[in-house]
Design a protein around this nucleic acid. Structure first.
Lengths: 217, 217
DNA sequence: GCGACTACGTACCGTACGGTACGGTTCTTC
DNA sequence: GAAGAACCGTACCGTACGGTACGTAGTCGC
């Protein structure tokens, strides 16, 4: 019955505050800094309450992921009319958002936590992170691509394959480098130009040919 | 003077054997399974020797990375004459190798270890992993790309940018998913086709147009 | 006002780990 | 063959953490 602890809908405001404090501790000092005693002290609650609410330490970690995921609301994709320029701008925004999300403190801390636990057998944190965190982004991008294809702005055979290519063009090896703590990888001021270049390349691969093709030669 | 411990050239065969056993423990059960007492028991050595050889636990981890990196020898890039087909095959091989390396047990275990430690302030494991592990791959790919460009098979403005794009096309989000423990991401039997598709896309972006351009329309 | 409930703070327990010390054994070297 | 170094096995120490138990203080319903 540990699942009952993981439903962010049932979290009380007090519990959410404690989970936020836990995320803060995790961001500051990593997993080692997130101890039940330390969290109880930092959040001014008792260890007993923590265990009562979340079961055990793994339940707490899972609840943190669920809680954080519940805070992120994907911007609703209004199906307004898209011309090529607007569609391209939407893709650039998506790419920029993606880089900022992946490079955010909370995302990096949670991914480091889940990856650190991934070697352990019974750990479902990785799955949980993918399901709760990535699914939303994937769906948002998938819908965007689908819209672009229906409007004849891009074309592809396999939507998932196209999305994975888009993801690779945007993120490259930046995510892992940021996870490893390489300072050069975390340059939010560079994300915009990276996003624009990635989308330009994506259009070369999947764009429908148009009359305004620049041809340097 | 901890640096002295990290030079794999100075490791004795006995020390290498211990480091191999440590890598084995790390692969089996993650960082939690790699304790000094456990390693001493598994490798039939004394804890005192471990501390004498590697300084402390962090020194041991660094030595493991250095040791593993020293085992990987990049295949020497013989500058034989390359036509397009051979160059393309070389790139596919590189992509296939890259996916197999990143998805290997040792690589995943070491990356998980370094990422788990990345939040800690003084941790240089991430840097060490990038320097010792990735530099070789990067140089190999860079040389390959440079050769292709000199032969007029591909073209690019910025070699590093081209390489990063190549990396993104090959790896996509597979590395992080494998690090998170997603079973679907680790399908070595699928790596070859992924590699071929990535190289095909790379040629669309950076290939020099030739007469045999297939044009569906 | 009173019981039932919840939560806070603290103290406590068992365990496990990093690191050190020491006696005994094997191997090298002269 | 003796001196000395390297190493193994084990025992030991201090600490820190996960998890539990308990005494107390609010709070809500009646």
């Amino acid at each position: 019955m540990q699942e009952a602890f993981n439903d962010p809908e049932n979290f009380t405001p007090r519990q959410r505050a404690v989970l936020d404090r836990a995320l803060g501790l995790l961001m500051e000092g990593g997993e080692r800094a997130l101890t039940t005693a330390g969290l109880a002290r930092a959040a001014s609650c008792s260890k007993e309450s923590i265990y009562k609410w979340f079961g055990d330490r793994d339940g707490l970690l899972a609840a943190m992921i669920a809680h954080q995921a519940s805070k992120v609301r994907a911007p609703s994709d209004d199906g307004s009319a898209l011309d090529l320029a607007r569609f391209r701008a939407r893709l650039v925004d998506f790419a920029d958002d993606l880089l900022h999300v992946l490079g955010g403190d909370v995302s990096l801390a949670l991914n480091r936590l889940a990856i650190g636990q991934a070697s352990r057998e019974g750990s479902r944190l990785g799955q949980l992170l993918i399901e709760r965190g990535r699914r939303g982004i994937d769906r948002r991008a998938g819908a965007l691509l689908e819209t672009g294809r229906r409007r004849g702005l891009i074309d592809y055979r396999d939507r998932d394959a196209a999305y994975h290519t888009l993801y690779g063009l945007i993120v490259r090896d930046l995510h892992v480098r940021m996870l490893l703590g390489e300072p050069d990888a975390r340059k939010p001021e560079a994300f915009r130009s990276l996003a624009e270049e990635a989308i330009a390349q994506f259009f070369v691969l999947f764009g429908v040919r148009d009359t305004k093709k620049a041809d340097p030669a």
